[in-house]
Amino acid sequence: MRSVIRAALAMAAAAPLVPAASADPLAPGAASCLACHGPGGGLPDLAALPPQAIEAALAAYRDGTRQGTVMPRLAKGFSADESRAIAESLGRTGAAGR
């Protein structure tokens, strides 16, 4: 009985201040990609691309097999795993969910 009460109180204490309706968290760095790659800009809208395509593009920019302006520099700021997480956050059906 006591443990039940303690568990219930612990839950009450840990209850979030706001409903857990918050958007799914994006992978580190992903939100900043949308400064250029959101909907309606002049650059590719990442939400319209499959995650695999984004991940492959980042890998190609990172290893120099794809040319570009700022992307060859920015892609070097993320490892293969970090790039995959970003692609999954922002690509079609990703956590950005637009």
């Binding site: 979030p16 201040l17 706001v18 968290p25 760095g29 900043s32 990609c33 400064a35 700022v70």
Partner: peptide, 17 residues
């Protein structure tokens, strides 16, 4: 958001262009 909801915020990455 994380602090208000009792979570530990993850280490971020930031970008400047």
């Amino acid at each position: 958001t994380d602090l208000l909801e009792g979570r530990t915020p993850p280490d971020p990455r930031l970008i400047n262009v």
